[in-house]
């Protein structure tokens, strides 16, 4: 279980905290899984992410970090921190999407990143959040609409200026 899910859990927690803390959270998540082995369902990953999510929420101002991360990534793209073969148009699109993501509500941001960044299916993401798949599907549909809306609004330049935080 550890080897199979380690990297995806670490990627998930890195969205919410720095590298050192993220590794600690992943450790704690596996320790909890060990203690509650009987509770771990057959599809382990959503359950593990749900546990990590609870640990994060107990210990960190998690959403703030995810929002700042989106802003940082967006700014980074616009200021040249990107792959050499990136097409400028795509870079701008991605930066715009990230900035829009930062402007969404915390619930929307969480729903969208579970799918886009962590590769979960709707059903898996619903399990992480403890809601029905139908509820999640509706939620993510609305979040996508709001993301599209936020992408069409011209950015306020000051929104791209943020206090840089350590990413890794």
């Amino acid at each position: 279980m550890y080897d199979e899910h380690y990297s995806r859990l670490l990627a998930y927690t890195l969205g919410y905290t720095n590298r050192a803390s993220a590794e600690e959270i992943v450790s704690e998540t596996f320790l909890i899984a060990w203690r509650r082995l009987d509770d771990v369902p057959e599809r382990e990953l959503p359950w593990l992410i749900g546990v990590a999510r609870n640990v994060i929420r107990q210990q960190y101002r998690a959403d703030r970090r995810l929002r700042d991360l989106c802003v940082e990534l967006s700014t980074g793209l616009l200021t040249g921190n990107r792959d050499a073969d990136d097409i400028a148009e795509h870079v701008t699109e991605r930066a715009t999407a990230l900035r829009a993501l930062a402007e969404l509500g915390a619930d929307d941001r969480e729903a969208l990143t579970l799918i886009a960044w962590h590769g979960l299916t709707n059903r898996e993401a619903a399990e992480v959040l403890g809601c029905s798949t139908a509820t999640f599907v509706v939620r993510v549909h609305r979040a996508r609409r709001r993301l599209q809306a936020a992408m069409t609004v011209p950015a306020h330049p000051q929104k791209l200026i943020t206090i840089p935080q350590e990413i890794s």
Binding site: G15, R94, L98, L101, A116, W117, L147, Q148
Partner: peptide, 9 residues
């Protein structure tokens, strides 16, 4: 729109 936005780190 979020394709390719997953943080590289």
């Amino acid at each position: 729109p979020l394709a390719g936005t997953r943080p590289a780190f």
